[in-house]
């Protein structure tokens, strides 16, 4: 018995020291700023631009996959309505990553509204990926270990300071056109696509987190002929009803969001292009401002950064 207690103490010491070393190494390997020059990977950089926004300055936060960053333009909504929004969306974002971005953003921001683009809800993932993501959240060395190639002396003592933000606020401008077929798009059915169990649990975590932070979580399905269908709509509508959430399916709102599938998609209906995003953002901006009475910051004298970014945004989208 005595020997077993000694072994238990010894192994506990070993593990505590291991965790301490992992935390120390995590700090060392963590990018000390949120730009790719500091080691943040390309896919994450735009989504992590929110960390460089002034504290408690964002009114609407959007999480989701490529559907979100292809369809919603925060700068257009700023130009038309004056509220600040940011897209924490990454390619093929699994829902557990949506939750991670949301949690990370809510540490410094207090948005009134959180928009979840619903495509990620049906993206299945393996339990192993989820565990790995949790482990990476705990020990960021697992996420940034590959920085051993670019580690500099600065990394050893430099404090973490996020200063960079994206002029497009997470939106990705793409004017390409590749027409889509609408043959099988939103064919009426009573079928319901089940939400994967792990994703449903993740959704519940998001709901709880938003409630804690006093943010209204709304579900938005942006138009896509390839990714969206009536069965998915039925599933999300039922989930929203069950959890008392607002659900906007823009695929079912051709009057409000008149997508022309011959011109408004960049890859045959998978994602919208800029022309499609303009239509979605026009509707969504108006809807959000009217429904949630979001403030207009356009004339705020103390912060001209968004108006400055708007100028650069215009240069990009108007060539």
């Amino acid at each position: 018995m005595k020997k077993q207690i000694a072994l238990l103490i010894k192994s506990s010491c070993f593990l505590v020291l291991l965790c301490t070393l992992m935390l120390a190494a995590s700090y060392l390997f963590m990018p000390k700023n949120n730009h790719k020059a500091f080691g943040v990977n390309d896919a994450e950089m735009l989504a992590r631009g929110i960390l460089g926004e002034r504290e408690n300055s964002i009114d609407v936060l959007v999480v989701g996959d490529s559907e979100a960053y292809s369809s919603i333009s925060p700068m257009q909504m700023w130009e038309e309505h004056g509220f600040r929004s940011y897209l924490c969306s990454t390619p093929a974002q699994p829902l557990y990553d949506s939750y991670r971005y949301l949690r990370q953003a809510l540490e410094r921001q207090s948005p009134s509204v959180v928009v979840l683009e619903t495509n990620a809800i049906f993206r299945p993932y393996k339990l192993n990926d989820y565990l790995l993501s949790r482990a990476k959240n705990l020990f960021s060395i697992l996420r940034y270990h590959d920085r051993w190639k670019s580690l500099k002396v600065n990394d050893f003592g430099r404090p973490v300071e996020y200063t960079w933000t994206d002029d497009l606020k997470g939106f990705r401008y793409n004017p390409a056109v590749a027409a889509a077929s609408t043959k099988n798009y939103m064919v009426p059915t009573d079928a319901v696509t089940p939400i994967p169990a792990l994703n449903e649990s993740c959704l519940q975590d998001m709901i709880t987190l938003c409630q804690e932070k006093n943010a209204e979580l709304i579900l938005v399905s942006t138009p896509s002929t390839i990714n969206w269908n009536q069965a998915r709509h039925n599933s999300i509508a039922a989930f929203a009803k069950e959890n008392d959430l607002t659900y906007l399916d823009l695929n079912t709102m051709p009057k409000e969001v008149p997508i022309d599938w011959a011109r408004d998609t960049r890859d045959r209906g998978d994602h919208l292009n800029f022309a499609g995003a303009v239509k979605v953002s026009a509707f969504l901006g108006k809807y959000l401002q009217e429904t949630y009475s979001l403030p207009d910051h356009r004339d705020a004298a103390h912060d001209s950064s968004w108006n400055d970014a708007l100028g650069r945004y215009r240069n990009i989208v108007r060539g």
Partner: peptide, 14 residues
Amino acid sequence: AFFFLVIFGAYGVG
């Protein structure tokens, strides 16, 4: 050995 694996392992993004 553990940190050799964690740091130099070919896993994650890329």
